[in-house]
Design a protein around this nucleic acid. Structure first.
Lengths: 207, 207, 207, 207
DNA sequence: CATGAATGAGGGTTCATTCAT
DNA sequence: GATGAATGAACCCTCATTCAT
């Protein structure tokens, strides 16, 4: 509470600038990919000069890193929403899948820059490790849900199943984001079918 | 008379060089991604001078294109093997999945550069269209198998299902290639479970 | 309100830089010819870095183009001076020749880079067409003078005579620029004799 | 006489090769200009490999030099023909001009590569000095003719007049070679008028 | 703090020249 | 002698980064 009061005007303005830069970067990365994105273009998109950009970020990689962090945080929010907005253990499988998937898909649809950043072929260690926390958290949460809903699956296998699940819906994202209208809806339905087809046998296993 | 047999020795050597360059390019692209890969580094990896590269390829993009073509051809072979090595309609689902997946996974495991090339964010039309033929062929083959094995699925839905299937196993590839030994085997088993879980309901649908 | 007067300081500096670069380019082109002139050398001669060159010109050709345009403009001024500074029809032939030649010779003496640029063997369309306007204008003016002073020359022949005249004094330029002092003066006298010897019979022809 | 007998077959073949290379070089220089002409292209035009080219010429400049020498020799022949084929002092001015100009124009029309070589902006000392001998010889001859036909011109002025004459018809060459058919003939007539207009007053001067 | 001109290392590419075959 | 693949220095140009204003 007292912390907010201390924040001077300056910092608030700087924080806004940073967000504007990251917005611009997300847009440019999404349009051109990480490598082809130039810092000058990002600066222009943010409506500032290249020099100003470097007042806030020490280099291009740092922009990517910060953007990644922001994505990660937002993604984390989407995940928390996915996992904490209601009971994931009680309801039937289809409903649980809806609850989990919808916020995550929504996030990906709303943030096209996300993939440009996290899909780059030469992702440096720093970036990969920025994504690690959510990946780890996500993995943990999915494992927890799995443990509760499919107690028959032995622990060693469970981690693997969780990874497979995560990979599945991350892989399906482009199929969803690249289609429009009814086709997108139909795609979402298919993704859910895939997950259901994979999870149903797990849930029915004996302990 | 002998004119048709034009410098067979030379051509053989040239052909070998081209393959060496493509091998080097595959390695460098895999390590650094397309953008960060420098032609000088590719030349060095191929054990030749930068100038020599350009005796065989007119520019960097042409190297990527040729490499893509080679991948496409090899991939095409893997697909043909996957789809033509035996009956895919008669056998039970698990066996059919084995027949389809194994050669494709083998190819991907053997060619780590493949993804670096076909996953780049700014893939130019030429490259994308190089991949198109196999994608299209693959789609067609999967659809054909689906039509035979799951006649209950209406035509419009079938294309979508085929795309989902392809996306699934392409997405699973990194999970497989990034793991080793028993874990890799277990991963392969999981991938097959995913496919089975998605296909079984389709096959059981009424026409 | 003040918006129209956009960064006058900056623009002035930029304009000066452009002129400095063109000065440097004129010098380097004159010394080395277009092909052998390197952009780095032009930049060095202008006292700036190679990168800065490209802040003002998009490529080497553009520098040549701009330099050509500047030459053309200056040359145009010399021509206008040559043709508009007084009556060219009334006076005797020798005086008219003085009025025409002197400003053009002066321009060529002052701008040694001019020929390096407009004499290059592979002159691209852009450059040739940059020179076209003055050539055409010059031709037109000479023809007009001819029409007035030598009405006996039929129209078809007049164009040819104008071209010959222009070629003569353009060809004499190196003879003049490469000599010094009295020799130069004597050369100028000779050039004028050539023109006079060619024009006198034309003027005396009957209509 | 005995010299020819000593020349072995080899050398004869080598000599022929050299001429073929120079023919090719003349063509390529004419088409592309000196700088843009590549040694590989010259070799290809000569129907040999780049390596073979260097068996005969140590570098690109040496080709230009040898070609220049050959041009100079041929030009010299044209000049000798121009000046030695008949009396240049007895006949009337127009006839004398015909005798002098026609062979030189013929040479230039027949050898388009000539100009590409001798008009290059960065002509090295070697090349310039290759042309020097004919220029000097030509100058001497023109001066001699002038001395005989226009004895009234003082010696100091005579050299200058000779240079002007040479420059005039060298400058007119492109006007002639760039036009075709009747227009070319008409141009030749004009060139001769220019020379006549310049020479007539000289011849009529008192000693 | 903002600006944007300036920097300069480094990338893709060309081509005169060499050398193993 | 002939071949043509191989070489590598040098060119044009880009762009992340700096710095004078």
């Amino acid at each position: 509470m007292g912390e907010q009061v201390r924040a001077p005007r300056r910092q608030a303005r700087g924080e806004r600038r940073i967000q504007e830069i990251l917005d611009a970067a997300a847009k440019v990365f999404a349009e051109a990919g990480y490598e082809a994105a130039t810092t000058n273009r990002i600066a222009a998109a943010a409506g500032i000069s290249p020099g100003s950009l470097y007042q806030f970020f020490s280099n291009k990689e740092a922009i990517a890193q910060a953007l990644a962090d922001r994505f990660v945080e937002q993604m984390g929010r989407a995940h928390r929403e996915a996992f904490e907005s209601g009971d994931l253990v009680g309801p039937l499988l289809p409903e649980m899948i809806d609850r989990m998937l919808d916020p995550i898909l929504a996030f990906n649809i709303a943030n096209p820059g996300f993939k440009a950043l996290f899909a780059r072929p030469d992702m440096p260690a720093g970036l990969a490790s920025a994504a690690r926390p959510i990946q780890t958290a996500l993995l943990g949460r999915v494992e927890a849900v799995l443990a509760a809903r499919a107690p028959g699956v032995p622990e060693g296998e469970r981690a693997r199943s969780a990874r497979v699940m995560i990979q599945i819906f991350q892989a399906m994202v482009p199929l969803v984001t690249s289609s429009r209208g009814d086709e997108r809806e139909a795609m979402i339905t298919e993704v859910k079918k895939v997950l259901r087809g994979y999870l149903e046998p797990l849930e029915q296993r004996r302990a």
